[in-house]
Design a protein around this nucleic acid. Structure first.
Lengths: 140, 140
DNA sequence: TTAGGTGCAAACTTTTTGCCTCCGA
DNA sequence: TCGGAGGCAAAAAGTTTGCACCTAA
Protein backbone atom coordinates (compact mmCIF):
# COMPACT_ATOMS: atom_id res chain seq x y z
CA UNK A 1 0.00 0.00 0.00
CA UNK A 2 1.24 3.38 -0.96
CA UNK A 3 -0.45 6.21 0.86
CA UNK A 4 1.66 8.81 -0.89
CA UNK A 5 0.51 7.59 -4.29
CA UNK A 6 -3.09 7.85 -3.14
CA UNK A 7 -2.47 11.37 -1.91
CA UNK A 8 -0.66 12.46 -5.05
CA UNK A 9 -3.49 11.17 -7.18
CA UNK A 10 -6.18 12.66 -5.00
CA UNK A 11 -4.53 16.08 -5.08
CA UNK A 12 -5.04 16.12 -8.82
CA UNK A 13 -8.57 14.83 -8.82
CA UNK A 14 -7.45 11.36 -9.82
CA UNK A 15 -8.38 8.11 -8.15
CA UNK A 16 -6.34 5.44 -6.57
CA UNK A 17 -6.93 2.05 -8.12
CA UNK A 18 -5.47 -1.41 -7.61
CA UNK A 19 -4.11 -1.33 -11.16
CA UNK A 20 -2.14 1.83 -10.50
CA UNK A 21 -0.63 0.40 -7.37
CA UNK A 22 0.24 -2.84 -9.10
CA UNK A 23 1.94 -1.11 -12.02
CA UNK A 24 3.99 1.08 -9.71
CA UNK A 25 4.97 -1.94 -7.63
CA UNK A 26 5.99 -3.84 -10.74
CA UNK A 27 8.15 -1.01 -12.04
CA UNK A 28 9.87 -0.66 -8.68
CA UNK A 29 10.46 -4.35 -8.41
CA UNK A 30 11.63 -5.07 -11.94
CA UNK A 31 13.65 -2.01 -12.98
CA UNK A 32 14.47 -1.61 -16.68
CA UNK A 33 11.33 -3.43 -17.63
CA UNK A 34 9.40 -3.04 -20.84
CA UNK A 35 5.66 -2.39 -20.76
CA UNK A 36 5.07 -5.98 -21.78
CA UNK A 37 7.26 -7.32 -19.01
CA UNK A 38 5.48 -5.07 -16.52
CA UNK A 39 2.18 -6.36 -17.79
CA UNK A 40 3.22 -9.96 -17.16
CA UNK A 41 4.24 -9.08 -13.65
CA UNK A 42 0.97 -7.32 -12.91
CA UNK A 43 -1.02 -10.17 -14.38
CA UNK A 44 0.48 -12.62 -11.93
CA UNK A 45 -1.60 -10.92 -9.28
CA UNK A 46 -4.45 -9.63 -11.43
CA UNK A 47 -4.72 -11.59 -14.67
CA UNK A 48 -7.53 -9.48 -16.06
CA UNK A 49 -5.45 -6.31 -16.31
CA UNK A 50 -5.07 -5.27 -19.90
CA UNK A 51 -1.90 -4.08 -21.60
CA UNK A 52 -3.75 -0.89 -22.51
CA UNK A 53 -4.06 -0.11 -18.84
CA UNK A 54 -0.35 -0.69 -18.40
CA UNK A 55 0.43 1.90 -21.07
CA UNK A 56 -2.06 4.39 -19.71
CA UNK A 57 -0.82 3.94 -16.17
CA UNK A 58 2.84 4.21 -17.10
CA UNK A 59 2.07 7.49 -18.85
CA UNK A 60 0.24 8.69 -15.79
CA UNK A 61 2.97 7.67 -13.36
CA UNK A 62 5.58 9.25 -15.58
CA UNK A 63 3.60 12.49 -15.50
CA UNK A 64 3.72 12.30 -11.71
CA UNK A 65 7.49 11.76 -11.82
CA UNK A 66 7.11 8.44 -10.12
CA UNK A 67 8.48 6.44 -12.99
CA UNK A 68 10.70 7.17 -15.90
CA UNK A 69 11.48 5.66 -19.22
CA UNK A 70 14.45 5.55 -21.52
CA UNK A 71 15.40 3.57 -24.56
CA UNK A 72 18.42 1.65 -23.39
CA UNK A 73 18.95 -0.04 -26.69
CA UNK A 74 16.91 -1.03 -29.67
CA UNK A 75 13.30 -1.91 -29.34
CA UNK A 76 10.94 -1.34 -26.50
CA UNK A 77 11.46 1.34 -23.88
CA UNK A 78 12.54 0.53 -20.39
CA UNK A 79 10.78 1.86 -17.30
CA UNK A 80 12.33 2.46 -13.92
CA UNK A 81 11.37 4.16 -10.72
CA UNK A 82 13.20 6.98 -9.01
CA UNK A 83 14.44 4.48 -6.46
CA UNK A 84 16.84 2.94 -8.92
CA UNK A 85 20.17 4.69 -8.38
CA UNK A 86 22.50 3.90 -11.22
CA UNK A 87 23.98 5.50 -14.27
CA UNK A 88 23.83 3.34 -17.37
CA UNK A 89 26.52 3.10 -19.96
CA UNK A 90 25.10 1.65 -23.13
CA UNK A 91 27.43 0.30 -25.78
CA UNK A 92 26.15 1.29 -29.19
CA UNK A 93 27.99 -1.59 -30.75
CA UNK A 94 27.14 -4.64 -28.70
CA UNK A 95 24.22 -3.17 -26.80
CA UNK A 96 25.87 -4.10 -23.51
CA UNK A 97 24.81 -2.30 -20.36
CA UNK A 98 27.23 -1.20 -17.65
CA UNK A 99 26.03 0.34 -14.42
CA UNK A 100 28.14 2.84 -12.56
CA UNK A 101 27.46 4.74 -9.35
CA UNK A 102 25.65 8.07 -9.71
CA UNK A 103 28.45 9.83 -7.84
CA UNK A 104 30.37 9.84 -11.11
CA UNK A 105 28.02 12.51 -12.36
CA UNK A 106 28.04 14.92 -9.45
CA UNK A 107 30.29 17.44 -11.17
CA UNK A 108 28.38 17.32 -14.41
CA UNK A 109 25.06 17.64 -12.64
CA UNK A 110 26.21 20.76 -10.84
CA UNK A 111 27.60 22.30 -13.99
CA UNK A 112 24.48 21.70 -16.05
CA UNK A 113 22.30 23.15 -13.34
CA UNK A 114 24.45 26.25 -12.91
CA UNK A 115 25.02 26.99 -16.55
CA UNK A 116 21.87 25.80 -18.25
CA UNK A 117 19.31 25.47 -15.48
CA UNK A 118 18.95 21.85 -16.48
CA UNK A 119 18.29 19.43 -13.65
CA UNK A 120 19.92 16.22 -14.69
CA UNK A 121 18.35 13.08 -13.38
CA UNK A 122 21.48 11.14 -12.52
CA UNK A 123 19.62 8.13 -11.23
CA UNK A 124 18.15 7.34 -14.57
CA UNK A 125 20.46 8.13 -17.35
CA UNK A 126 21.80 6.33 -20.37
CA UNK A 127 25.15 7.37 -21.74
CA UNK A 128 26.00 6.01 -25.11
CA UNK A 129 29.42 5.06 -26.35
CA UNK A 130 31.64 2.06 -26.85
CA UNK A 131 32.39 -0.42 -24.09
CA UNK A 132 35.67 -2.08 -23.14
CA UNK A 133 35.00 -5.28 -25.04
CA UNK A 134 34.17 -3.70 -28.36
CA UNK A 135 36.92 -2.93 -30.88
CA UNK A 136 37.69 0.53 -32.03
CA UNK A 137 36.28 1.24 -35.48
CA UNK A 138 38.79 1.58 -38.31
CA UNK A 139 39.98 4.97 -39.37
CA UNK A 140 39.66 6.69 -36.03
CA UNK B 1 30.22 12.11 -53.80
CA UNK B 2 31.86 10.33 -50.95
CA UNK B 3 34.93 8.39 -51.93
CA UNK B 4 35.53 7.28 -48.37
CA UNK B 5 32.10 5.70 -48.20
CA UNK B 6 32.83 3.83 -51.41
CA UNK B 7 36.13 2.62 -49.99
CA UNK B 8 34.65 1.59 -46.65
CA UNK B 9 31.96 -0.41 -48.40
CA UNK B 10 34.35 -1.97 -50.88
CA UNK B 11 36.69 -3.09 -48.10
CA UNK B 12 33.88 -5.21 -46.74
CA UNK B 13 32.72 -6.62 -50.03
CA UNK B 14 29.79 -4.26 -50.17
CA UNK B 15 28.79 -2.06 -53.04
CA UNK B 16 28.40 1.62 -53.36
CA UNK B 17 24.94 2.61 -54.54
CA UNK B 18 23.17 5.90 -55.14
CA UNK B 19 20.70 5.02 -52.39
CA UNK B 20 23.44 4.62 -49.82
CA UNK B 21 24.97 7.93 -50.74
CA UNK B 22 21.60 9.66 -50.62
CA UNK B 23 20.72 8.26 -47.22
CA UNK B 24 24.06 9.30 -45.76
CA UNK B 25 23.69 12.76 -47.27
CA UNK B 26 20.20 13.09 -45.85
CA UNK B 27 21.29 12.09 -42.35
CA UNK B 28 24.17 14.53 -42.46
CA UNK B 29 21.98 17.30 -43.70
CA UNK B 30 18.96 16.82 -41.48
CA UNK B 31 20.38 15.70 -38.12
CA UNK B 32 17.95 14.22 -35.57
CA UNK B 33 15.77 12.89 -38.33
CA UNK B 34 13.49 9.91 -38.16
CA UNK B 35 13.68 7.20 -40.81
CA UNK B 36 10.48 8.55 -42.30
CA UNK B 37 11.85 12.07 -42.49
CA UNK B 38 15.04 10.78 -44.07
CA UNK B 39 12.96 8.89 -46.58
CA UNK B 40 11.13 12.06 -47.61
CA UNK B 41 14.42 13.84 -48.08
CA UNK B 42 15.86 11.07 -50.22
CA UNK B 43 12.70 10.88 -52.27
CA UNK B 44 13.05 14.49 -53.30
CA UNK B 45 15.97 13.40 -55.43
CA UNK B 46 14.99 9.81 -56.09
CA UNK B 47 11.25 9.31 -55.61
CA UNK B 48 11.38 5.58 -56.22
CA UNK B 49 13.48 4.82 -53.15
CA UNK B 50 11.51 2.74 -50.71
CA UNK B 51 11.29 3.15 -46.95
CA UNK B 52 12.57 -0.40 -46.62
CA UNK B 53 15.80 0.66 -48.24
CA UNK B 54 16.06 3.54 -45.80
CA UNK B 55 15.83 1.17 -42.86
CA UNK B 56 18.29 -1.28 -44.37
CA UNK B 57 20.74 1.45 -45.24
CA UNK B 58 20.52 3.13 -41.86
CA UNK B 59 21.32 -0.21 -40.25
CA UNK B 60 24.24 -0.63 -42.57
CA UNK B 61 25.62 2.86 -42.01
CA UNK B 62 25.23 2.47 -38.29
CA UNK B 63 27.26 -0.73 -38.46
CA UNK B 64 29.98 1.26 -40.21
CA UNK B 65 29.85 3.90 -37.46
CA UNK B 66 28.88 6.54 -39.99
CA UNK B 67 25.52 7.27 -38.44
CA UNK B 68 24.01 6.84 -35.06
CA UNK B 69 20.60 6.69 -33.56
CA UNK B 70 19.05 7.54 -30.25
CA UNK B 71 15.55 7.86 -28.95
CA UNK B 72 15.32 11.48 -28.00
CA UNK B 73 11.74 11.23 -26.88
CA UNK B 74 8.70 9.13 -27.58
CA UNK B 75 8.11 7.51 -30.90
CA UNK B 76 10.52 7.05 -33.73
CA UNK B 77 14.28 7.08 -33.28
CA UNK B 78 16.43 9.92 -34.43
CA UNK B 79 19.48 9.49 -36.64
CA UNK B 80 22.54 11.68 -36.76
CA UNK B 81 25.97 11.56 -38.27
CA UNK B 82 29.29 11.83 -36.48
CA UNK B 83 29.65 15.31 -37.86
CA UNK B 84 27.01 16.67 -35.55
CA UNK B 85 28.86 18.03 -32.55
CA UNK B 86 26.40 18.72 -29.80
CA UNK B 87 25.29 17.35 -26.51
CA UNK B 88 21.54 17.06 -26.15
CA UNK B 89 19.63 17.78 -23.02
CA UNK B 90 16.20 16.24 -23.25
CA UNK B 91 13.51 17.38 -20.86
CA UNK B 92 11.52 14.39 -19.71
CA UNK B 93 8.59 16.63 -18.92
CA UNK B 94 8.04 18.79 -21.99
CA UNK B 95 10.22 16.82 -24.38
CA UNK B 96 12.18 19.97 -25.16
CA UNK B 97 15.66 19.67 -26.60
CA UNK B 98 18.56 21.88 -25.58
CA UNK B 99 21.92 21.68 -27.28
CA UNK B 100 25.11 22.45 -25.44
CA UNK B 101 28.72 22.35 -26.61
CA UNK B 102 30.50 19.01 -26.26
CA UNK B 103 33.27 20.65 -24.23
CA UNK B 104 30.96 20.41 -21.25
CA UNK B 105 31.61 16.70 -21.18
CA UNK B 106 35.38 16.62 -21.44
CA UNK B 107 35.89 15.80 -17.78
CA UNK B 108 33.25 13.13 -17.73
CA UNK B 109 34.56 11.57 -20.93
CA UNK B 110 38.04 11.30 -19.49
CA UNK B 111 36.79 9.85 -16.25
CA UNK B 112 34.64 7.19 -17.87
CA UNK B 113 37.48 6.15 -20.12
CA UNK B 114 39.99 5.91 -17.31
CA UNK B 115 37.79 4.17 -14.81
CA UNK B 116 35.53 2.01 -16.91
CA UNK B 117 37.20 1.79 -20.30
CA UNK B 118 34.05 3.26 -21.75
CA UNK B 119 34.52 5.58 -24.70
CA UNK B 120 31.72 8.07 -24.46
CA UNK B 121 30.48 9.50 -27.70
CA UNK B 122 30.08 13.11 -26.67
CA UNK B 123 28.91 14.26 -30.06
CA UNK B 124 25.79 12.22 -29.89
CA UNK B 125 24.43 12.00 -26.47
CA UNK B 126 21.11 12.58 -24.85
CA UNK B 127 21.04 13.56 -21.22
CA UNK B 128 17.68 13.36 -19.62
CA UNK B 129 16.36 15.61 -16.90
CA UNK B 130 14.18 18.64 -16.40
CA UNK B 131 14.67 21.87 -18.32
CA UNK B 132 14.52 25.47 -17.12
CA UNK B 133 10.95 26.07 -18.19
CA UNK B 134 9.42 23.07 -16.49
CA UNK B 135 8.22 23.32 -12.89
CA UNK B 136 9.71 21.28 -10.14
CA UNK B 137 7.45 18.39 -9.16
CA UNK B 138 5.79 18.63 -5.78
CA UNK B 139 7.32 16.94 -2.81
CA UNK B 140 10.93 17.21 -3.88
C1' DT C 1 26.81 -16.33 -63.49
C1' DT C 2 26.55 -15.10 -59.10
C1' DA C 3 25.89 -12.54 -55.05
C1' DG C 4 24.53 -8.04 -53.51
C1' DG C 5 21.00 -4.64 -53.58
C1' DT C 6 16.40 -2.83 -54.29
C1' DG C 7 11.32 -2.37 -54.64
C1' DC C 8 7.04 -4.01 -53.39
C1' DA C 9 3.70 -6.21 -50.58
C1' DA C 10 2.62 -8.39 -46.63
C1' DA C 11 3.49 -9.62 -41.94
C1' DC C 12 4.65 -8.37 -37.45
C1' DT C 13 5.33 -5.74 -33.15
C1' DT C 14 4.37 -2.07 -30.35
C1' DT C 15 1.43 1.61 -29.03
C1' DT C 16 -2.80 4.34 -29.29
C1' DT C 17 -7.72 5.18 -29.88
C1' DG C 18 -12.75 4.56 -29.60
C1' DC C 19 -16.33 2.92 -27.27
C1' DC C 20 -18.92 0.77 -23.89
C1' DT C 21 -19.47 -0.48 -19.14
C1' DC C 22 -18.55 -0.16 -14.38
C1' DC C 23 -17.91 2.20 -10.12
C1' DG C 24 -17.07 5.49 -6.40
C1' DA C 25 -17.62 10.31 -4.70
C1' DT D 1 -25.59 10.78 -11.59
C1' DC D 2 -21.42 12.23 -13.31
C1' DG D 3 -16.81 11.84 -14.59
C1' DG D 4 -12.80 8.90 -13.93
C1' DA D 5 -11.05 4.21 -15.09
C1' DG D 6 -10.48 0.00 -17.22
C1' DG D 7 -11.40 -3.85 -20.72
C1' DC D 8 -11.76 -5.08 -25.30
C1' DA D 9 -11.24 -4.66 -30.15
C1' DA D 10 -9.67 -2.21 -33.84
C1' DA D 11 -6.60 1.04 -35.81
C1' DA D 12 -2.32 3.29 -36.30
C1' DA D 13 2.62 3.65 -36.19
C1' DG D 14 6.92 1.76 -36.80
C1' DT D 15 9.76 -1.95 -38.48
C1' DT D 16 10.97 -6.35 -40.60
C1' DT D 17 10.62 -10.16 -43.84
C1' DG D 18 9.96 -12.80 -48.16
C1' DC D 19 10.48 -12.78 -52.75
C1' DA D 20 11.26 -11.56 -57.50
C1' DC D 21 14.01 -8.85 -60.41
C1' DC D 22 17.87 -6.24 -61.68
C1' DT D 23 22.77 -5.16 -61.94
C1' DA D 24 27.76 -4.84 -61.38
C1' DA D 25 31.91 -7.61 -60.67
Amino acid sequence: MDTSLRRTLHDRGLRMTPQRQLVLDAVRELQHATPERICEQVQRVAPAVNITTIYRTLDLLEGLDLVWHTHLGHGAPSYSSQAHEHVHLVCHRCGGLTEIPPEELIDLTARLRDRFGFVLNPSHLALSGRCVQCPEPEGS
